[in-house]
Design a binder for these strands. Sequence first.
RNA 1: UGGGGCGUAGCCAAGCGGUAAGGCACGGGUCUUUGGAAUCCGCAUGCGUAGGUUCGAAUCCUACCGCCCCAGCCA
Length: 568
Amino acid sequence: MTDTISAGSKTNFIYTKIREDLEKGILKDRPVHTRFPPEPNGYLHIGHAKAILLNYGIALDFKGKFNLRFDDTNPIKEEQEFVDSIIEDIRWLGADWEDRLFFSSDYFEVKYQFACRLVEAGRAYVCDLNQEEIREYRGTLTEPGIESPYRNRSAAENLDLFERMRKGEFASGSRVLRAKIDMASGNLNMRDPVIYRILHSSHHRTGDKWCIYPMYDFDHPFSDCLEGITHSLCSIEYTDHRPLYDWIVDNAVELMPEAVKYRSRQTEFARLNMTYTVMSKRKLRRLVEEKHVAGWDDPRMPTIAGLRRRGMTPQAIADFQKRVGVSRADSTVDLALLEHCIRQELETTAPRLMAVLDPIKVVITNWPAGKTELCEMENIPGNKSAGTRQVPFSGEIYIERDDFMEEPPKKYFRLAPGREVRLKGAYVIKCEEAIKDADGNINELRCTYDEQTRSGADTSGKKIKGVIHWVSVEHSVKITANLYDTLFTVENPEEDSEVEFTGHINPQSLIVCNDVPAEPAVAEAAPESRFQFLRKAYFYLDPEASSEGKPVFNRIVQLRDSWAKMKK
RNA sequence: UGGGGCGUAGCCAAGCGGUAAGGCACGGGUCUUUGGAAUCCGCAUGCGUAGGUUCGAAUCCUACCGCCCCAGCCA
């Protein structure tokens, strides 16, 4: 794994641009300063993680600063609950804003003052048109807009009206403050955009202090200026807003220079999409509300909370982000890349354990009755310091049902009638008989073991190709394993115009295995720890779902399986 | 049909006039008491298309094609 959050792909266009800015000296004495500006109206997902890690990584790489600033300018949609979950998620990811946790709402007063200066300068006006009228006056994509009849009110009248808007003299939606720019612009964002609206609504932080709230296009660039943000990164759909961003910054520099720490500039990059999932807040909400998943933190969700619950690590997500890179092109990254990142980390960090997800019993007929032997096994192969453990072996064990085949195809080298296989860390056994019930189902295998083949002390000279895992029946501990798979059956659930995305939900996205026999060491597993269940998959001990003596493991990702591929 | 953005391998992505990095995926070999891991090899005479400039073009010019975004008092 490429190490930390920083030291990412240093060849992306944003890094190039920052280096150029530094060389040109346009930052003056200021450090490179980025920010992540979430709106507290929902949960963060892995697309946000890309933005967080990019912004924070830049601060680390350029020895700059990183702010966390909540964009809380719309009291109707925002809640403290989301502020809390977002903070938790960003902390978990490892981004550090030090003492710079800010809220857009912290700056409402100075923003109001700035708006007043815009009004005084004749660059903003109070408009009495209602919402529908404003839309009509705006024109269309191909036709210019027409000017509002209120566009040329005097500065004095505008100032008076704006002050009274603040005082609460007018009803919600009855008037707005608009920037006076260009109703004929080909860029709709420049057709006298609304910058303040009346909302008689209680705000999660400012309560009822305000009844007018700034719009994003006015608020964001100004907040960036106040905080001295040098590089304001956002997603590509804001490209059209950049002229307006610059308009606000230019006016701030001219009309309120004392408040501007830096002439901030916006740079856009493509947001993250991933195969086999959806990323829009709206669609994720539907998955939750329509109960396709158990909640925002369901391990099948691409939310940070879901990934955490699945057992994903922040390091793997950071590694993923770096490997994905940053560009301006629309893209959909293969889920396989994320899986590769987490597998690579867990390969060297996750202790191994044996558990049999789909068990069939094996009776070893020549094993001395009642005898138990301890087999020493490495916790992490190739890592001596991770130590070993003793795994009890006896005459009755479980193996995976698919590690036996009555009529094996070519190249199948596990157990079959008359064939031998090694039990990992123990002995070689030979299948003598498959016991069938009345319906012809095989529910038990009779085998013999070769006592010369003891692991580490094999004197038999046998070359056994197949190695399988096992659990002693008598010593087994029962656990629950949640086998998670992709939430959707198709790479892009959104591309089909005939079928809604929910129509592609994978009915097998969660298979719950109860009473899974596992080796006794599983009882000592600590909540939130990760293991490899040998030959199967990596698992995470879910602290939410587990209870005393009832451990629940979530499958993080399967091991690569070249046998499964061969079968296709 | 207005404005903006983007097209380099199956998926990401470097490249900025000197002859196509890297990763994932995929295919094959070696090794292996995890069909895991490790390791080696292969994988774009080609950069949306067509012209042009140049000794030389993915990089510059022209035209065309395709995809994405914008008409919230959301962010």
